[in-house]
């Protein structure tokens, strides 16, 4: 089965070479597609030096926009399985088989940092404010989808063909795309499962957003979720 890994990268020249080397060692038969999201550093050069496919956006679209391009490209190239991988070294290549194994009986797999039913205790620590916000998102997603997800914002995900085609055109492009993408997949009646995975601390670069902007995006996603509550019944039939 043809498998591709999509890596959105914005100014990740520092961490990217290590990530690409690890991937080449762990999953040599997977096609690697780096999306250079309008970086001002040498992200594209680093990707080219590693000999992987690199799509260079003319300006920064944000992670959702970069991912959508990645899905569109891999869908057009005919890949059957695609997974997202962070350019900052947060994801552990040894966990990829666990993620892909989940696709055997699901359309989309989300790697969770928290063991199911035990949020906050999967070896991954978050601050109190972020913990609260994540708890709120979990609860809202549960209300909106009728399912429990422990890690709604995890960016370690795998999907297969029907979802890939949906995401190629409809992937949410605003920040916190991961939460919206989860809803989108569930609403279209796809089977989405979570699998517990190990994650690491980021190895380079900075978190892309903080404080006020983050708060704004929480409110935005809240509106998206609340707006989605009304549609629950209609989509509940397929869920």
């Amino acid at each position: 089965m043809r498998t591709a890994v999509v890596i959105p990268a914005f100014n990740e020249a520092e961490a990217l070479p290590g990530v690409l080397a690890e991937l080449a060692a762990a999953v040599p038969d997977h096609a690697v597609v780096v999306i250079d999201d309008g970086s001002s550093d040498d992200t594209a050069g680093v990707a080219a030096a590693a000999g992987v496919t690199c799509l260079r956006l003319p300006f920064n679209l944000g992670i959702g926009g970069a991912l959508r391009l990645g899905f569109r490209f891999t869908a057009e190239e005919g890949f059957e399985r695609v997974y997202q991988f962070d350019a900052d070294g947060q994801h552990d290549p040894s966990q990829i088989p666990i993620l892909l194994a989940g696709l055997e009986n699901a359309d989309m797999v989300v790697g969770t940092r928290f063991a199911v039913g035990d949020p906050g205790d999967g070896g991954y620590r978050v601050g109190r404010g972020r913990g609260l916000a994540m708890g709120l998102l979990r609860w809202l997603v549960r209300r909106a989808t009728g399912r429990r997800f422990t890690d709604t914002s995890s960016g370690f995900r795998a999907l297969r063909r029907p979802v890939l085609e949906l995401f190629a055109t409809d992937y949410p492009v605003e920040y916190m795309d991961s939460v919206e993408a989860l809803l989108l997949a569930v609403r279209h009646g796809f089977t989405v499962v979570e699998v517990p995975v190990r994650m690491r601390e980021r190895q380079g670069g900075r978190p892309s957003t903080r404080n006020l902007r983050l708060a704004y995006h929480y409110v935005r996603v809240l509106i998206v979720l609340v707006a989605g509550l009304g549609r629950r019944t209609r989509l509940g039939a397929t869920a």
Partner: peptide, 13 residues
């Protein structure tokens, strides 16, 4: 504009 940026990137590739 987003869609155009995607098209442009794919064409350049």
């Amino acid at each position: 504009v987003r869609t155009l940026a995607e098209e442009l990137t794919l064409l350049r590739h």
